[in-house]
């Protein structure tokens, strides 16, 4: 049975994929090996895991401004998440998503998105409608 999760209007077009979830934060510069496409920061809960073509579900965005360019660079090389869902995005990641055309949503009505969705769940993300469907 599928569930629908309402969120704030986001950025980008509708996309479908498998979730990779952690109650942790995100910075493209601090946390990732962008060539290998894995989380490279040892302290990160997704350390060692590949994010390529996953829908990342994380708490919030942290750290530097560089992530804004990095999403575009990652998307162009094709080693990139399919979408990112946050409890709260920050400005940088939203700006980066806008440049990269990477779907991104945040502010879920039913609470903590990192507990509402589990790794491996099949998701349909519709940022313009502000809707995520868990199949």
């Amino acid at each position: 049975m599928s569930r629908e999760l309402k969120c704030h209007k986001g950025i980008g077009d509708k996309v479908e994929g498998k979730a990779l979830v952690a109650d942790d934060n995100f910075s493209a510069r601090y946390d990732l090996d962008r060539i290998k496409g894995v989380f490279s920061r040892k302290a990160h809960k997704l350390y060692g895991q590949s994010y390529k073509d996953k829908i990342l579900v994380l708490n919030t965005a942290k750290g530097g401004v560089a992530s804004a360019w990095m999403l575009h660079e990652m998307k162009t090389r094709g080693i990139c998440p399919k979408a990112i869902l946050f409890n709260t995005a920050n400005t940088i990641l939203a700006q980066g998503a806008a440049l990269a055309d990477l779907p991104m949503c945040d502010r879920f009505e039913d609470g903590d998105v990192t507990t509402l969705i589990k790794s491996g769940d099949h998701l349909i993300v519709d940022p313009q409608a502000g809707l995520v469907t868990v199949k």
Partner: peptide, 12 residues
């Protein structure tokens, strides 16, 4: 503008 080559890359 932050525009260091590492984050910008060739696509940027």
């Amino acid at each position: 503008m932050m525009i260091d080559p590492e984050s910008v890359g060739d696509p940027g």
